[in-house]
Nucleic acid binder design. Structure first.
Lengths: 182, 182
DNA sequence: GACTTTATATATCGAATTGATACAATGCAT
DNA sequence: ATGCATTGTATCAATTCGATATATAAAGTC
């Protein structure tokens, strides 16, 4: 399940350009599987080379050609093989947690600011999920509804944990920092 | 807050080799910020070059030299600057969710197997956190305790969500798949 | 009318990261 | 005695990230 495979999956919904796929990565997958142009265009080129997608170049006046990709039979085959993975990964890379692990080297004010910004970010992402969900003209497939709910559940748990535990870094625990800071 | 900065932070606890840091990345940071040798050794080389760490090579009979790194005053300075970031990121890259988004292209059996393996993985990680937490000879700093609790809260929320929503992919919703699969 | 932002659309580039592998010796267990 | 885990170094190809470049049109703003 790399960028290539997700692109294939997106193309099962219909033909699309690299630009279209980028928008899909931002909206449907933004909260769980981001990808930029630097991943998408090489992925499409590789898929085209291996015959998993076909590409039609549509000339446009002035603008560069619009390249529209379609999934092929071989693409379907590869996609279904990839979807057979029984134990796909779920990874977190958190500069937030890495920084918090060194909270004893920060001032209490710095720590509280970081916690505030994490809550704000969670709220932003929650609003984003709500907007996206209600933006569907038709109804989203089961799996997409599942991932949206998953994202919401995680964000709520994150907010709750931060709010219930930010006291760890104030008052009585203050001397810990003073004792440790070199 | 990249691998270099986390290495610097780890070195505030005392001198260490690349191998030692790898173990720290696996234990304390395994659930939130992983790094392998391919990141750690280049990071240490770069930190040494920029004078943020000093390196002492200790010859060993037969084995290759053991290179022990220590944080310098400049290293402390850089670290404290990095810790001043008020809005560090928290990113998820989930092949699990990406795959689930295409659940309508999988068989119900495949979907349930994926959900089972996700729960098993969460349980493994919960056990790992418990073991790590109780393994501390002395007590962990506040920040580390915070990140461990954070990880636990996320994993519990994940398990709960999966268990409460796996019904989405069975019985009544079954025809959705039949209708969509090409 | 001039100016700026936003959207459409392509693509590349260096830097960072991943995941696997190689090499080399010791010690421990079966 | 033979294989496996541990200690320790390090590299490599493939992938991904984040920023940037190019070009045009529409739409909003001063």
């Amino acid at each position: 399940m790399d960028v290539k495979t997700v692109c294939l999956g997106m193309l099962t919904e219909g033909e699309a350009s690299g630009y279209d796929l980028k928008k899909a990565f931002e909206s449907s997958f933004g909260h769980c599987f981001a990808a930029g142009y630097g991943s998408i265009y090489p992925a499409l080129a590789s898929l085209a080379e291996s015959g998993c997608v076909s590409c039609e170049e549509i000339a446009q006046d002035g603008k560069p050609d619009r390249k529209v990709y379609r999934i092929t039979d071989k693409g379907w085959e590869i996609l279904l093989e990839e979807l057979d993975n029984p134990a796909p990964s779920h990874k977190v890379r958190s500069e937030f947690l890495a920084q918090m692990a060194f909270a004893h080297l920060m001032t209490p004010e710095q720590v509280q600011e970081v916690l505030n910004s994490r809550i704000e970010d969670a709220d932003r992402n929650l609003r984003f999920i709500d907007e996206f969900e209600s933006s569907g003209d038709c109804e989203w497939p089961v799996g997409v509804r599942f991932t949206l709910g998953f994202g919401r559940a995680m964000l709520h748990a994150m907010k709750a944990y931060v709010e219930e535990n930010r006291h760890m870094f104030t008052s009585s625990d203050r001397q810990t920092r003073k004792a440790v800071a070199r």
